[in-house]
């Protein structure tokens, strides 16, 4: 890392987040920084608090303590819709697309969230070029250019995951929070999404929660390991992999 980069304000930053559910300390002093053009991977065993952390970053959960900043602005008090409008997009671990819509309509809705004008009551959204052209461009990016007119129900699982990402991209975000984008995919489908992320990474600050270690080591610039709500290591992937604490706590099973 050059000095100039190190001094820059990170695009998206979480400072000392704490979240408790009853007797469980789900997030225990978590700090993270994401920078544009870099992929920050977050790994950890099941139940480590990855999804809870992501919920706080996206605004779905309010942390008990700590703060979250976008471009230096404190966004801790903003809820999920408000953060989404500022450019924090997320994908879901369990595919969450609109089943009765076509593929293009799904993405068009995401475009619309950026374009506003939701209280247009009479223009036909399906013939609105401002929506459909942008939607088609996002579909092209993720490799679903031909599927625009299909019903979502007709898509394969992997294609739905691609659609998830297309929807996140269509909101023109600065920050992408991806919750296991390869979950449930075969090797070929996984490869499609991995190379997609490789192409996209330059333009976004990416947080990647992922179980597939090959993908993590291929994409990540920074690797953080979450255990029991706490980061036990964070840094360049090679160093983190060799960290004895990490080996003990987690990676021994995976390697």
């Amino acid at each position: 890392m050059t000095e100039a980069q190190a001094a820059a304000v990170p695009t998206f930053e979480a400072r000392a987040l704490y979240k408790r559910f009853g007797g469980l300390q789900a997030t225990d002093g978590l700090s993270l920084a994401l920078e544009r053009g870099r992929v920050h991977a977050l790994i950890g065993p099941n139940g480590a608090g990855k999804t809870t952390a992501l919920a706080q970053l996206s605004g779905e959960l309010r942390p008990d303590e700590g703060s979250i900043h976008l471009d230096g602005r404190d966004v801790t008090a903003l809820d999920m819709p408000a953060r989404a409008r500022l450019g924090i997009a997320r994908s879901f671990q369990i595919t969450a697309v609109f089943e009765s819509f076509t593929v293009r309509e799904n993405v068009a809705l995401a475009v619309q969230s950026r374009a506003r004008h939701h209280f247009h009551f009479f223009g036909n959204a399906a013939r609105d070029r401002r929506l459909t052209d942008t939607a088609d461009a996002a579909l092209e990016q993720v490799g679903l250019a031909d599927a625009g007119g299909h019903r979502v129900a007709a898509l394969a699982h992997g294609q739905k995951r691609q659609l998830e990402i297309a929807m996140a991209l269509a909101t023109e975000p600065q920050v992408l929070l991806l919750d296991e984008p390869m979950a449930g995919m075969g090797a070929a489908e996984s490869e499609v999404v991995a190379s997609l992320l490789e192409r996209l990474r330059a333009r976004y600050a990416v947080l990647l929660i992922e179980h597939d270690m090959d993908v993590v080591f291929r994409l990540a610039d920074t690797l953080s390991v979450l255990v029991g709500g706490r980061l036990i290591a964070s840094g360049p992937p090679g160093e983190v992999r060799d960290d004895p604490d990490v080996q003990a706590a987690y990676l021994q099973e995976s390697f």
């Binding site: 409008r85 068009a108 959204a125």
Partner: peptide, 26 residues
């Protein structure tokens, strides 16, 4: 016309998946 408009899309999106809509900024 209304259900096919931008407004109608949002209404139906909220019917399908409210959480997803919130994540998109609605």
């Amino acid at each position: 016309r209304m259900v096919n408009s931008r407004f109608g899309r949002v209404l139906q999106g909220c019917r399908e998946n409210e959480r997803r809509m919130r994540a998109l900024g609605f």
